[in-house]
Amino acid sequence: MPAEAAVSSKPKSRSRALNWRRRLTQIAFTAILGQWSFYGIFRCPFIIPYMSCQNCPVITCHGRLLGMFWGFWLLLPLSVLVFGRAFCGWACPGGLVTQLWSGLAPLKLRIRNLFMRIVPHFKYLGLAMVLCIWLLWGQYREIVPIRVGEFFSSVALTFEHANPIWLVRTFFVLGSAALSLLLANAWCRFACPTGGLLEALRPFSVLKVYKNNKCDDCDTCLKICEMGTRPSELNCTNCCDCLSVCPQEAITIGNPRRKA
């Protein structure tokens, strides 16, 4: 192999190795959180899942069975303060699914324009709606909870005995996730309320993937980013996919405040 080619392929292979490491981490977290995540969408009796596990009658859900509820909501805010939105890029089972689907999406939307500056803020609307339903409206059960049951028949029974509002929320979530097959990562980038919450806290995080002053706005990082963003900008999940691709070597990971 010519020396030049070897040099140019090195960052690519480093980036690929990091990406694989991230995928393996996502798979490991899916093994831990996947069942709870699945139940939250398909079997949780509440409109806002993952928030009322302590008094949920679905006794086979890991959120309640393994006491995940408390650990998750204690550790998640801490993880944001240290790692930013790394949960979205490294741990969220839903994120893994939509990211894999996004590989098939014809519209990657890895561009910078007015539309792409506005639409990611929609997830704050989702967050506001969730907080209103949870805090003001109260968490009513909107399905007949299938306390214990077989995998497929439980999901079928849940849908059969659900109130219209639960069906609306579930089809909205599933529809937004499925939209990722058309628009890359549509759910994570534009709709996820948890992502909205983490995004709001992200500026306070210690560790960041960020650009230094060598950046010449070539957007090479944007073109490989699954979230269609650039380091440390709106929707950056510290996934690290861009760390090795910058021709100016302007992307780094660390505490930008300390560098400053």
């Binding site: 007949v144 299938i146 306390r147 214990v148 049951g149 077989e150 439980s154 029974l157 059969e160 005995h161």
Partner: peptide
Amino acid sequence: AYTGAFASALGKSLLGGA
């Protein structure tokens, strides 16, 4: 293969096609 849920809802399903 066990399913436990609100009996009236299960009964409704059983009186239907379940």
